[in-house]
Amino acid sequence: MTNQDQAVEFRRTAGAFATGVGIVSSVHDDIPLAMTVNSFTTVSLHPTLVLTCLKHRSRLLAQIRDSGIFAVTVLAADQRDVARWFADARRPSGAAAFAGVRVHRAPATGCLVFSEGLAYFDCRVRDLSDQGDHSVVIGEAVSYGALHPTKAPLLYLHGSYRSIAAAPSAASAA
């Protein structure tokens, strides 16, 4: 099996794991950047740590290295178009990428949060580690909260966006 064949098979196999979809954003010198990710997870409650993985060559990773800050917005099922837009490498850079998208500044870092999302995490970089063709970015969530917790989440499975019927209520999740 060639390296290319291995990469295709690994990606297909990993695609069997349903993930949430989020957008990671950062701002440096008042220039915002953002990118869709499905590699996001919480790491620790004490301290409040989260993790995302970004390709070494991504502009967003370079900006996070320079700024030391980022925010993650957890996307809702009705945000498929936003997820596709920020996953498209052909989108414009900087503020032009956000035209027509409702965003607001995260309270601690000033990174952009997507206002129609489910939740956000406003982070300061705690650690960066190069692993393979990506960097693992661990951030301390210094501010976080629910935005629209009753909306259904956007999921990614087998190479496409999916959703579930509805988000569970706080009472039924307990």
Rank of each mutant, 00 (worst) to 15 (best):
M1R: 06
Q4K: 05
A7C: 03
V8P: 04
V8C: 06
R11E: 09
R11K: 15
T13E: 03
A14T: 13
A14V: 11
G15A: 09
F17H: 15
T19V: 07
I23W: 05
V24T: 13
H28G: 06
H28R: 10
D29Y: 13
D30A: 15
A34F: 08
A34D: 07
T36H: 08
N38Q: 12
F40W: 12
T41C: 13
T42I: 00
T42P: 00
V43I: 12
V43K: 06
T48D: 11
T52Y: 01
K55H: 08
K55D: 09
H56N: 15
L61D: 10
Q63N: 14
Q63S: 14
G68H: 09
I69L: 13
I69Y: 08
A71E: 09
V72M: 14
T73Q: 06
R80P: 01
V82S: 07
W85E: 10
D88M: 10
D88S: 11
A89D: 13
G94R: 09
A95Y: 00
G100I: 00
H104Y: 01
A106D: 00
A108F: 02
V113G: 01
F121V: 05
F121Y: 11
C123W: 02
R124C: 00
V125M: 07
R126Q: 09
D127G: 02
S129W: 01
S129T: 09
Q131A: 12
D133F: 06
S135T: 15
V137K: 04
G145W: 14
L147F: 05
H148T: 09
L155Q: 05
L155H: 10
L155S: 10
L157M: 12
S169M: 10
A171S: 13
A171R: 11
S172N: 03
